[in-house]
């Protein structure tokens, strides 16, 4: 697992209060991990803070699963 992937998972575990074993790449924040719309916004903000990137709203809307978050960040974090 990449460094980015493990940091992303740690944030999700902390913010959504879920077990690490549930945080697999296919898991959807809202359908599988119990996030509501505000939780999702908070997650994006935490990724921005952790990786020092700005995720534009139109990009944020495409991040709905753990795998999508990891892929986006691996591509955009320098």
């Amino acid at each position: 697992m990449s460094d980015i992937a493990s940091r992303v998972k740690a944030i999700i575990v902390e913010k959504l209060g879920v077990d690490e074993s549930e945080v697999n790449p296919e898991a959807s924040f809202t359908n599988d991990l119990g996030a509501d719309s505000l939780d999702t916004v908070e997650l994006i903000m935490e990724f921005e803070k952790e990786f020092n990137v700005a995720i534009p709203d139109d990009q944020a809307e495409t991040i709905g699963t753990v795998g999508q978050a990891i892929a986006y960040l691996e591509k955009n974090v320098k």
């Binding site: 505000l38 916004v41 908070e42 903000m45 921005e48 803070k49």
Partner: peptide, 9 residues
């Protein structure tokens, strides 16, 4: 402005 979405509620 990086306000937490839970700030207001």
């Amino acid at each position: 402005p990086r306000f937490n979405p839970f700030f207001i509620p």
